[in-house]
Nucleic acid binder design. Structure first.
Lengths: 341, 341
DNA sequence: AAAGATGCATTAACCGATTAATGGGTAAGC
DNA sequence: GCTTACCCATTAATCGGTTAATGCATCTTT
């Protein structure tokens, strides 16, 4: 039983006034234009009786602003793992969006889409700005920046001095995780690294290398295994753990990969943390529920997402905050998977 | 360096034709209107040179369709747990949306919003239809239905014969989980139930009761504990597990609650599955990575979400499929947490 | 040579709002 | 009695597109 669309003109007709008057009443333009209480009341009545709802498209078209922001993710990146990372990010973003009176649109893009195409979809007027969660070598941000389209990168740094971003110090995070293991006496430490297109993944790896070298250990090439997601092939890890000089510790670039590693280790009848210590990254809620609970580097995902939205809104409003980079500090949540507590 | 908005009029001017001609070229109205190759080429050139991108708002306004669908969730429901459920749902929905050439918008709503408000936001013209993930007693669907706004409920049933929904047989799911435990010899089985506003939660509970009764067991009231999320208070469970006639099995209404329960059990130095068997619900990826891997009732979340989008798109296109209810069958993924394999 | 068909592009109207500029009536000021 | 001020509401223009109807050459057909 689809009612016909009720427009502002219908309301105007019903209330016996012009469209404009209705518009003024709805938007409460106090100070600019005064409407008599009687008229105002008649209009509200008509609105209620007709069940009128303003059309956001039309409104956005004239206002030149939609009050909607987009969250643009890399298709593969989002759904590759089952980690709580994305969810916590969305939670933070949506919380802050609500706070700022914005709506949220999700852009996942199709698999084969090129950046040009994606950029067109993003800049087609439906959103005022975008939060980008993308690889470091992704061209999308460049296109947006060249067009002056407001956007903020999150969980990565930008390659241009004019592009705002919210990140966490991943080198330090990687360093902290590794140092913790070193301090516990481990020397043979494996690093399960993320994609080589991911700035955080590379940075965490560098942090790992840095900590190792500081200890006078040149990390063996075999010790760094690329495992971007929990579904990645784990045989290199299995083989390494079978070798005579088996590593005694694993630092994984993400929690879900760490959990996958724990499973691999368990299946080899090795104990955690007695035989193998494990450290993850993100310290998502699931870390509290693994057995043993997983030590992990925490980045304030929720807060970072909120900060991203806040910055984005400022950009949309034409502000140009001094600080381009907003880099949070990681901390280490020590649980029991490394035998430290 | 914000360029001024390039409009279709700019392109027209540059190419020396009218707006309409440009519109025709862009939308390739073959058969209706013919444009000479030379003009067509000039227009594309102008488009490229000016970096023109059609404005989706304006287009949607005239076309009366936005090619965007909304996913409307209950704020609390989404972010209450860390389960992969929502993620898998979003994955499926976004996959099918791409397939159907639609974009996705996320509505989370603010905490205090009433349904009227939410309905207004949903029906403001920005989306052609909505996928609703809401409580069974939620009034939102009623409002949408009364306005004839295309929408599909997912992971719940509808209370009206004219509202389409995609669900999984939760009574059967609850029955299967419980029956499995009964078959393994368990008699004292606890059920960790979800919210009383959630149809799936209630149905799973009913399935549990049904299976118990079939076995001649009247489930004790104390055996049913409301634990909607992994962060819910677990003391009732703890106390129950401490009691002299301690239950030997737990059936949790969701995976994350099951994992929380496993943790509680472990902290009491009870072994899983030897002392306590555990069964979860959803069979999300994380079930493969717990220790021991978690037996769980599987509902095809990804596929259900896709089906929801498919149905929604048909409704948007004015079709009225015969079948209002699309109910999937649950299956049981037996892993090691109940000692059966 | 008149009528009809074809090819190409234009004009006019509309989608549903917002905003600036304007207008008309009544009361107050001098 | 004329100006000024104020209150309330309207008219006109605009946002950036789409679509139906129309116009006008040029080419065919009879």
């Amino acid at each position: 039983m689809r009612r016909e669309r009720v427009t502002i003109a219908d309301v105007a007709r019903r209330a016996g006034v012009s469209k404009v008057t209705v518009s003024y009443v709805i938007n409460g333009r106090e100070g600019k234009v005064r409407i008599s209480d009687e008229t105002r009341q008649r209009i509200w009545e008509a609105i209620r009786e007709l069940g009128y709802r303003p059309n956001a498209l039309a409104r956005a078209l004239t206002r030149q602003r939609t009050s909607t922001i987009g969250v643009v993710m890399q298709y593969a990146a989002i759904f590759g793992g089952w980690s709580g990372f994305i969810l916590e990010l969305l939670h933070g973003a949506s919380h802050e969006a609500i706070e700022q009176q914005y709506d949220l649109m999700m852009y996942t893009g199709a698999h084969g889409d090129d950046a040009e195409h994606e950029a067109n979809a993003i800049m087609d007027g439906r959103i005022d700005g975008a939060l980008l969660l993308r690889d470091i070598d992704d061209p999308l941000s460049d296109i947006l920046a060249d067009s002056g389209f407001p956007h903020v990168l999150i969980f990565t740094r930008s390659r241009r001095p004019d592009v705002y971003y919210v990140d966490c110090d991943n080198v330090k995070g990687g360093y902290m995780a590794t140092k913790h293991l070193l301090d516990l006496g481990h020397r043979a430490i494996v690093h399960l690294r993320g994609s080589s297109h991911s700035a955080p993944a590379l940075d965490r790896w560098h942090g790992y290398v840095q900590a190792m070298r500081e200890e006078g250990i040149e990390p063996d090439e075999e010790w760094v295994i690329e495992m971007p997601g929990p579904l990645s092939d784990a045989t290199p890890l299995v083989e390494l753990m079978r070798s005579p000089n088996r590593p005694t510790a694993i630092f994984a670039w993400s929690d879900d990969v760490a959990i996958r590693a724990m499973q691999v280790v368990r299946e080899m009848d090795l104990r955690i943390p007695e035989d193998v210590a494990v450290v993850g990254y993100d310290s998502t809620e699931v870390c509290n529920h693994t057995d043993p609970p997983l030590t992990s580097v925490r980045q304030p995902i929720y807060e970072m997402a909120r900060e991203g939205v806040r910055t984005l809104v400022r950009l949309i409003n034409g502000e140009r905050p001094r600080r381009i980079a907003r880099v949070f500090e990681p901390t280490l949540d020590i649980r029991r998977s490394c035998g430290a507590s």
